[in-house]
Deep mutational scan, measured.
Amino acid sequence: MTEYKLVVVGAGGVGKSALTIQLIQNHFVDEYDPTIEDSYRKQVVIDGETCLLDILDTAGQEEYSAMRDQYMRTGEGFLCVFAINNTKSFEDIHHYREQIKRVKDSEDVPMVLVGNKCDLPSRTVDTKQAQDLARSYGIPFIETSAKTRQGVDDAFYTLVREIRKHKEKMSKDGKKKKKKSKTKCVIM
């Protein structure tokens, strides 16, 4: 069974824990209790493949930012979460993405942009803004509501699919490099 290491990042209060708990335990946590770091595991079937999701729910508070490099190193894919009623959390996505790329030393890291709290009427981040940002990053965008469960499975499952595509691409690139290195030079 394939294991996928997913990391949920975003500013404090955007609903990272609520999304994760909704996926794992099928219930909505409405009281806000700032996370330092929590880890969850769940076995699911995605596109006919049974897999184990190892999900790291991270601290959004700035005082825990020193811990970010460590979990970013171990993560295979990242859910970059903002709240649709919090423009600052949307603007912060850029910083999370840049930090992930720096730590992973790669421009090509599996990510999904997630606009959470889409059940709320007080939207300050337009869907088109988020779609445009995701398009500019070359990553999928999904709106979710941890409260109603809308888009929750889709967000995590899409990230797994992005990781699969990335692994497939990397193995193809690896095979191309191996083929090239088999060419021999004969000096007579």
Rank of each mutant, 00 (worst) to 15 (best):
V160A: 04
F156S: 01
K128S: 14
A155D: 00
V125T: 03
L133P: 03
A134R: 01
G151T: 11
V186S: 13
D154P: 04
Q131N: 06
T158I: 03
R164V: 11
K177L: 08
L133S: 07
R135P: 01
G138C: 07
R135A: 11
D153P: 07
K169S: 09
R135L: 09
L133Y: 12
R164G: 07
V160G: 02
G151L: 07
A146Y: 00
K172P: 02
K178T: 06
A130L: 15
Q150T: 13
D153G: 10
K176V: 02
V152Q: 11
A155V: 11
D132G: 05
D154I: 05
R135S: 10
L159I: 09
T127S: 12
S145A: 04
E162H: 02
V160R: 03
H166R: 09
A155W: 01
V152C: 10
Q129A: 14
D126Q: 06
V125L: 04
Y157C: 15
A155K: 00
H166M: 13
K165M: 06
A130V: 13
E162F: 01
L159C: 02
Q129V: 12
R164W: 07
Y137W: 15
K165R: 08
V160H: 03
T183Q: 15
D154F: 05
Y137G: 06
K167G: 05
M188F: 01
I142P: 00
D126T: 09
S145F: 04
S136G: 14
G174E: 11
V186Q: 15
L159P: 00
K128N: 10
S145T: 14
K128E: 12
K167Y: 02
A155E: 00
E143D: 14
K176G: 15
D126E: 09
D126M: 10
Y157D: 10
Y157A: 15
D153R: 11
K128D: 12
F156C: 05
F156N: 00
K177W: 08
K128R: 10
S136F: 06
K169R: 14
Q129R: 11
S136A: 05
K167M: 02
V160K: 08
K128M: 08
K178P: 10
K167N: 10
M188G: 14
S145E: 08
K167D: 09
E162V: 01
D153A: 13
R149V: 12
A130M: 15
E162C: 02
D126V: 08
L133E: 06
S136R: 08
H166A: 05
K165T: 11
D153V: 13
L133R: 06
T158A: 12
K128A: 12
M188V: 05
E162D: 02
F141D: 00
E162Q: 07
D126R: 02
G151S: 07
F156Q: 00
I139A: 05
E162A: 04
D153M: 13
D132H: 04
M170W: 09
R149S: 11
G174W: 00
D153T: 14
I139R: 01
A134D: 03
E162G: 03
K178M: 14
Y157V: 15
Y157I: 15
K178W: 06
T158R: 02
M170C: 11
F156A: 02
K167H: 08
Q129S: 13
M188S: 13
K178I: 09
D132A: 07
K165Y: 01
D154Y: 05
Y157K: 14
S136K: 09
H166Q: 05
V152M: 14
K184G: 14
Q131S: 11
S136M: 11
D132I: 03
V152H: 09
K128F: 10
K169Y: 10
A155H: 01
L159V: 03
V160E: 01
H166D: 08
Y137H: 09
Q131L: 07
K167I: 01
Q150L: 15
T158D: 07
D126I: 05
Y157W: 08
K178Q: 11
K128H: 12
V125W: 15
K178L: 14
Q131V: 10
V152G: 06
D153K: 13
A130F: 15
V125G: 14
T158N: 08
L159G: 00
K178A: 12
S145L: 01
R135V: 04
T127N: 13
A130G: 07
K178C: 10
L133W: 12
D132W: 02
Q131G: 06
R135D: 15
M188T: 09
K167W: 02
K167R: 13
T144F: 01
H166W: 08
A155T: 01
K169W: 07
Q129G: 09
D132S: 07
A130I: 15
Q131Y: 10
Q129T: 12
L159M: 05
S136N: 08
S145Y: 03
D154K: 10
V152T: 08
Y157N: 11
T158K: 04
D153F: 10
V152K: 04
F141N: 01
F156E: 00
V186I: 02
Y157H: 11
D132T: 05
K178R: 05
F156D: 00
V152Y: 13
V160L: 05
L159H: 00
K128T: 13
E168R: 07
Y137E: 14
R135F: 02
F156K: 00
I139K: 01
K165V: 08
D132L: 04
A146S: 01
D132R: 03
D154T: 10
T158M: 13
K128W: 07
K182I: 06
Y157R: 15
I187V: 14
K128P: 10
S136C: 08
K169L: 09
V152P: 04
T183F: 00
Q129Y: 14
E168M: 06
K167V: 03
L133M: 08
A134W: 02
D132P: 01
R149L: 13
V160W: 02
Q131D: 08
D126N: 14
V152L: 15
S181A: 09
H166I: 07
K167E: 04
T127C: 12
Y157Q: 14
D153Q: 13
A134E: 02
R135E: 12
K165E: 06
G151R: 06
D132F: 02
Q131W: 04
K167L: 01
K176C: 11
A134H: 10
R161P: 00
S145D: 06
K128G: 12
T127G: 11
R149Y: 12
D126F: 08
Q129M: 11
G138R: 03
H166E: 06
K184L: 00
D154Q: 11
V152E: 03
C185L: 01
L159N: 00
T158P: 01
A155N: 00
V160S: 02
L133A: 09
K175A: 15
L159W: 00
K176T: 09
S136Q: 12
V152D: 04
Y157S: 13
R164F: 03
